[in-house]
């Protein structure tokens, strides 16, 4: 066997990273566990839609529920409000918390690193994979909600939370913006979970730690004396997507939230990188 052949590198670093990412995505989106989570979350809007359809027909519901019954797009908003505080973050935490710890637990981490995937590249690919899973999850939920809404409720102009009315087309654009916003929020959580994942060889530990963090911050948020802390907590920022349903959209708040997500991503990715690149792999 020729030594030259062994040392020829493919064209670019990008193509190498892209190939590893594709392999990672294939693992994530073929894994039954992840598909089941996506299916369950996609079922939530359908259940909510059917329930509202039944209750709404009795004509006594108020607020957002009444609006949902009046317009197909609103089901997407309601579904995200139900799922974003806990269920979607848990699903993202399962994939992101598994990132490094899962590979360490099965021992495949040592083979990926001697392949050699490169620690920085592997971490980047793992994080990107978790971000894309969060995006896919949000898109799946939004799509399920939109389709259910279109089937069960009248389509047409959308009345916003602030009372103004916009066209269906602009409404769809705003839903798309909400998906982007929520996915950014999930990306911030994924950074926390991936960082925790570099500290253990037990995937369930990293996942549980992330979920506990989410619940603790939700509790902290509910304590009035800690109001000053709320803007710095991820769950506070997650539900900020309702701003996109007002007229005018409070852009400064939206930007602040996106900035907060960015800060979490930078901070926890740095932590993960520092930990993972200096770690002894003994699993």
């Amino acid at each position: 066997m020729s030594t030259a052949e062994a040392l020829v590198l493919p064209a670019t670093r990008t193509s190498v990273t892209w190939r590893l990412l594709r392999s990672e995505l294939a693992l994530t989106f073929r894994r039954p566990r992840n598909l089941v989570m996506m299916a369950i979350l996609a079922a939530v809007p359908i259940i909510i839609g059917v329930v509202i359809r039944l209750v709404g027909s009795e004509g006594d519901a108020g607020g957002m529920i009444a609006q949902t019954a009046g317009n197909s797009l609103m089901l997407t908003v309601v579904s995200l409000f139900v799922l974003v505080p806990l269920l979607m973050p848990v699903a993202v935490a399962v994939v992101a918390g598994d990132a490094i710890a899962g590979e360490a637990g099965t021992g495949t981490l040592r083979y990926l690193l001697t392949a050699p995937a490169g620690r920085g590249r592997l971490l980047a690919v793992k994080y990107l994979n978790a971000v894309l899973f969060g995006l896919a999850l949000t898109l799946t939920v939004a799509t399920a909600a939109l389709l259910t809404g279109l089937v069960l409720f009248p389509a047409g102009d959308v009345t916003l939370l602030s009372g103004t009315t916009i066209s269906l087309g602009e409404g769809l654009l705003r839903v798309l913006a909400m998906v982007g916003y929520v996915a950014a929020g999930m990306a911030a959580l994924a950074a926390v979970a991936v960082a925790l994942s570099t500290f253990t060889e037990v995937a369930i530990g990293a996942i549980a730690a992330t979920v506990v963090l989410i619940i603790v911050t939700q509790v902290l948020r509910a304590i009035p004396q800690l109001d000053w802390l709320a803007p710095y907590l991820l769950p506070t920022r997650w539900t900020g997507f309702d701003g996109l349903l007002r007229d005018p959209v409070p852009m400064s708040e939206i930007w602040q939230s996106l900035l907060a997500f960015g800060a979490y991503i930078v901070l926890f990715c740095s932590l993960a990188w520092a930990r993972f690149t200096g770690k002894d792999i003994t699993s």
Partner: peptide
């Protein structure tokens, strides 16, 4: 190193493809 370690839910060839994808020289 220290015995085999693979993804139990993947086939033998899918496992090898996975590690091949991690090799920047392949």
């Amino acid at each position: 190193v220290e015995g085999p370690a693979f993804y139990p839910y993947l086939s033998g060839s899918a496992n090898l493809l996975r590690f091949d994808a991690a090799n920047p020289a392949a």
